[in-house]
Structures are given as C-alpha cells and as structure tokens.
Design a protein around this nucleic acid. Structure first.
Lengths: 123, 123
DNA sequence: TGAAATTATGAACAATTATTCAGATATAAT
DNA sequence: ATTATATCTGAATAATTGTTCATAATTTCA
C-alpha cells in the first residue's frame, strides 16, 4: 500500500528533492494561466503567422495583399488571420468588399523583438 | 500569357495595393530569420514545456523532480527537456546519476512575462 | 437583378508533434 | 560483478494542426 493517500501518479521515479518541489509548487504560476500562455505562444509558433505579424508591423494590409506578399492562397491566409484575431493579435476594418487587417497589441512587437534577440545570439 | 515572367503564384487573387506590398517587402525581416523565429516560439507553445520553464524560474531541478511536480513520466519530461535544450533555453549539469536542469537565457523571463501581460489583459 | 470580386468557412487530407513503451546507458552502492 | 537508480533514446501511436478544396456570404458595379 502507498505511504499516503494520493492517487497513482504517472511519475515513475522517486522524488529526490521534496523541499525543492514544494517550494517550486508554491511559487509557480497557476496551471490555468500556464495553459493559456502556451496557447498564446502557439500562435507565434507558425511561420505563416509570424510572417503575417511581421508584415503588419509595416502597414495594415488586406487579405489579398498578404496572400500575394507571402505567395499563398487567400484561403490559407484567411484561416490564419482568424487564429491571429482570436488571440487578439490583429484587428480588422471593413471597407466595401475589402477587409484590412492590422496589429491589435503593443506587446506583440516586444515579444517578437525579444525572440529575435534570442535567435540572433547563436554562438 | 502573364504580364511578367514570374512563375505561377499560389495566390489566387488580384494584387490590390502594389505599393503597399512593395514597401512591406522591403521592410520585412528576411524569410530565414522569420522561420527560425517561428521555430523558437513553437518551443514556448506547449503546456508541458511552458510549465517546465516556469518551474525553473524558481529553482534548478532534476528530471525526476520535474516529472513528479508535473505528474508526468520521466520519459516525457526528458524528451521535452531535449527540445528546450536544443532551443538553448535550458542547460544542465550532471552530478553522479542525477542531471540538474536550469534556465540558460535572460530573455526567457522577459518573453514569458510579456506573454503573461498579454493574456492578463483579456477584456 | 446579375455578375464579378473579396473574404470566410467547413470538411478532408497531409504533415507534424507529444506521449508512451521498451529498452539502452551511465553512475553509485553493495 | 551485480543490483538499483536516474536519465536517455528510437519507434509506435494518438492527437493536433496547416493547407487545400469547394462553396457560402458579402459588397460593388454594371
């Protein structure tokens, strides 16, 4: 029988440093926020979406223009713009038939730039 | 016949704002860097890895401890630690049988925090 | 009203990815 | 040497994700 009443854990090894685990557990951001955070970064983790974001740093653009710029189908771009919009990274305005997209967040540039700093530091 | 000698484009719509596209093209970060950047953010875009990163903000930990903390198998954690190491986000030191992992980058915290700011701004 | 153009969307498919499983390696202790 | 422990690794599986295709919705213009 187990020493305590905790359900079977998937973890298949012994706890080596219980004190460390306790401390980390207390200091850690709650699981729900961490899941949201991973979902958020997932949006940055696709080359099509990163290119769209980067393009929108320069100027607002319509779907057609982005598709042309990236040499991809309008449909593919539209799908990705929806993902970006759901993550509140872009916003859009409609002018007749044309929908113009632009960035909707000041943090995007900061996150983007910090990422660039990191990959530029390759030794 | 096409107006110019460019190969067939996947883009299936007309260019509406050629001037904008030209301007954006000039200002855009080169494709190679953008691909690397997407690869880099992909590493943040998984809840297991985000949790590992967050845990390591508090303290260095061995594989066993991380597995126990997150209630996952040692193997799963080991696989993800490899991904994190390849992205140069964590480093490790060996002490006998035990391998201790810690963060290997000052930018990680900045990127993590900016992400948190973003998701905390939900209206 | 009808045709053309732009964008959005659902379903299917292909590709990628995380985890599990089984077993290998490496170190320490007996 | 043998056993036990911690970690790593390759292959298989399950789940997720990006793109394509076909089509719908919306707006403009004739």
């Amino acid at each position: 029988m187990a020493e305590n009443n905790i359900d079977f854990e998937k973890c298949d090894c012994n706890v080596i440093h219980e004190d460390v685990i306790e401390k980390v557990k207390e200091e850690m951001t709650c699981e729900e926020k961490l899941n949201d955070l991973a979902e958020f970064f997932k949006v940055f983790g696709d080359s099509t979406r990163i290119k769209i974001i980067c393009a929108l740093f320069s100027s607002e653009m319509c779907v057609c223009d982005i598709a042309s710029l990236l040499n991809m189908t309008q449909s593919a771009i539209s799908h990705q713009l929806r993902v970006l919009k759901q993550a509140r990274l872009v916003k859009n305005r409609k002018d007749g038939k044309v929908v113009y997209y632009s960035l909707d967040d000041e943090h995007v540039q900061k996150i983007f730039d910090q990422g660039l700093v990191h990959i530029n530091e390759r030794r």
